[in-house]
Amino acid sequence: MLTVRDLTVSSGSATEPVDIVAGVSFGVAKGEILGLVGESGCGKSMTSLAIMGLLPQPGPRVRAGRVELDGRDVTQLQPWQRVEAGHGRMAMIFQEPMTSLNPVRRIGDQIVEAVRVHDDVSAAAARARELLELVRMPDPEMQLAAYPHQLSGGQRQRVMIAIALACRPQVLIADEPTTALDVTIQVQILGLLRELCGRLEMAILFITHDMGVIAQLADRVAVMYAGRIVETAAVDAVFGSPRHHYTRGLMDCMPSRNAGARRLPTVSGQPPAPGTIRAGCVFAPRCGAAREQCHVMTLSRVEVSRGHEVLCAFPLNGGEPA
């Protein structure tokens, strides 16, 4: 449903581009949730904004690559341009439900505004109500007249989802939608997304830094590091036998996997800043198993098993180095 090929997002000048996202490729199928996971600053948010056509201006831009929505090229198109071109069925929800709604306009108006982009004006109000019911908003009739500050964080995120659903999306991008919420609310929102994904047959690209959320929600995972996707696989495969050393490191940091540990292990060192990246594997400087060639050789993606790709010259094998 959503296909991204060699997407490269760069800041800096045209002659000396600095790649924040470097040749990212993945696909998300109908009814599937792909978790895009990585540390903050790895380029996952930039990836999502680039796909959506919402990169801040002035700011980084898409330098190369292709984004396809249901087989149609939507690269570089802003949302309104996609709507014009008839490929408007992609929506996004954001990390901060507290600030993502206009504080001086009523909830109803804000949903109706989204509905009107795609639907007949006359039925918009009824459709807004329907959408609030769809996201299981308690007392939808009353909430239509409410202002954002009168709602809780979880309710606001439900409103955001309702707004996103207004275009009957084939693809929904969710950029850390639960990070700012309480754990109990987080579970509810994740459940809602899972349910909507199946019921509305959407493809969901779910962006998070939290492996725990991925484990709960996603069907497949793409692990991102320093602007590159270093491992892609089904959730079970990744959690069962991670093949990239970075993925392994991330999983060792999960509290649930280290129930007895006094102190959580961490991946030592810092990810490289964009622009400082040289030849060789991007993770080599932090990799415990790096060999001499890792710092110089050019890597290409390897399919280690069916549907399991990894960007590593010496991938782990069943949790142990090959």
Binding site: F94, E113, A114, H118, A166
Partner: peptide, 25 residues
Amino acid sequence: EDYVRTARAKGIRPWQVVRRHILRN
């Protein structure tokens, strides 16, 4: 502001984003 990004994500035209969301605030 984040809500301006939300407005853009809805697919409304740039000048409408300005008029309805940026200008008033």
